[in-house]
Amino acid sequence: MSQTRDETILWESFLNGDNHSLEVIYRIYFDELYRYGMKWLKDGHLVEDVIQDLFVRLIQSRGNLAVAQSVKFYLFRAFKNMALDKIRLEKRLVGGNEPSSDTFQLDLSPESSMIDKEEYLIIKSKIENALVQLTPRQREALYLRYIEEFSYSEVSEMMGLTAKGTYKLMSRAIEAIRGQLPAGIFIFLSNHFLRLHPY
């Protein structure tokens, strides 16, 4: 990613006392953090609260923060911990049971930009079936790898697994989904919908 280096500069500048740099980071990642937060919390106001708390805490603990290799990863990991704390707190307040992360939702793209429509609908329903069967942790791993585009080692760290464990978790998930894909040869590369007609 071309901006990684710029972000590292921003982060260091923030560590050195410049809040404007943090504001830039805040604005770069707000939408992504919000989307990720909604997967856990499902309530926009709660997500906004957590984002606010996250940046307050970053500023307050500025002196103790490390130089981040990946700003995004740093933010996401801290954000996830705080979101899970929030869930625990909410559950305690409403007298629920032990906190759990059994809520991680993964949705399919509403309308893939490139797949032929009918084919897409078929695949979508198949994959939806498969997704329900997955464990929340499998869903989360897929989300972090394919949507947030974290590396395997980052996904592992975020999930508290070894690299091997992550690979295993994901490959089982993939196999389960693949098992649901309709057989037969598809017209084209999946995200390239154009069909070439013989002439």
Partner: peptide, 11 residues
């Protein structure tokens, strides 16, 4: 093709 479909199907 299958792998591509799986990867690109998530939201």
């Amino acid at each position: 093709n299958d792998a591509r479909k799986i990867i690109s199907s998530f939201e």
